[in-house]
Computed example of a mutant assay.
Amino acid sequence: MVYYSSDQLDRTFAAVADPTRRALLTQFEGRDAITISELAKPFAMSLPAVMKHLDVLTDAGLIVRTKSGRTVTCRLTAGPMEEAMEWLNRYQRFWTAQLDRLAAFVEENPCSPSQALPSTGDSTPRPRKSSPRGRTRKK
């Protein structure tokens, strides 16, 4: 059995839960390293706000920052994301197997529409739970 570090998974999923951080991660597609100012350019937010998002991504281990002079570049690291994908794949296999079993059951036991709906003609009326409305006379 494979055991996952719940702290690392928690940080990874928390980091990718935010749409801004996911958008930041997509900018790494096809690129090795990106400067922070390049990462911040498409967003209508301040550079300190982008830096806070990058801090979360760094804490989760999804990116690594390096400084060369006055330029800070970020590089994507795949390790935590691979661990999260392994965890998700385990549940995907489980649900795929469950849905396959359900499909096989439905194919083996087809149900006609008349069997699926309760019959209204054979039902008996419910007994009354209380006396009729209105005042009752004492005899």
Rank of each mutant, 00 (worst) to 15 (best):
V2Q: 11
Y3T: 15
Y4K: 02
Y4P: 01
S5W: 08
S6K: 10
Q8I: 11
L9A: 00
F13L: 04
A15C: 01
A15T: 02
V16W: 04
V16S: 01
V16R: 02
D18T: 07
D18V: 05
P19A: 02
L25D: 02
E29M: 15
E29Y: 14
G30D: 00
R31A: 06
R31L: 09
D32M: 07
D32N: 11
A33W: 07
A33C: 06
I34L: 04
T35A: 05
T35N: 03
K41S: 14
F43L: 02
M45H: 09
L47T: 10
P48Q: 03
P48K: 03
V50T: 08
V50I: 07
M51N: 15
L54W: 06
D55A: 15
V56F: 08
V56H: 08
D59W: 12
A60H: 02
A60R: 03
G61I: 05
G61N: 01
G61Y: 01
L62T: 04
I63D: 00
R65Q: 07
K67Q: 04
T71G: 01
T71A: 03
V72P: 00
R75Q: 05
L76C: 09
A78H: 11
P80D: 00
P80F: 01
M81W: 06
M81K: 05
A84R: 00
A84F: 00
E86H: 13
W87N: 07
W87F: 08
L88S: 03
Y91H: 04
Q92E: 10
R93N: 06
F94K: 10
F94P: 05
W95D: 04
A97Y: 05
Q98I: 07
D100W: 05
R101W: 11
A103Q: 12
A103G: 14
V106K: 11
V106T: 12
E107M: 09
E108D: 09
P110G: 01
C111G: 13
C111A: 14
P113V: 03
S114L: 12
S114T: 12
Q115C: 08
A116S: 12
A116M: 12
L117P: 15
S119M: 12
T120L: 10
D122L: 08
P125C: 06
P125S: 05
P127G: 05
K129H: 15
S131L: 13
S131Q: 13
G134M: 00
G134F: 00
R135A: 10
R137W: 13
R137I: 15
R137Q: 14
R137S: 09
K139M: 13
K139E: 12
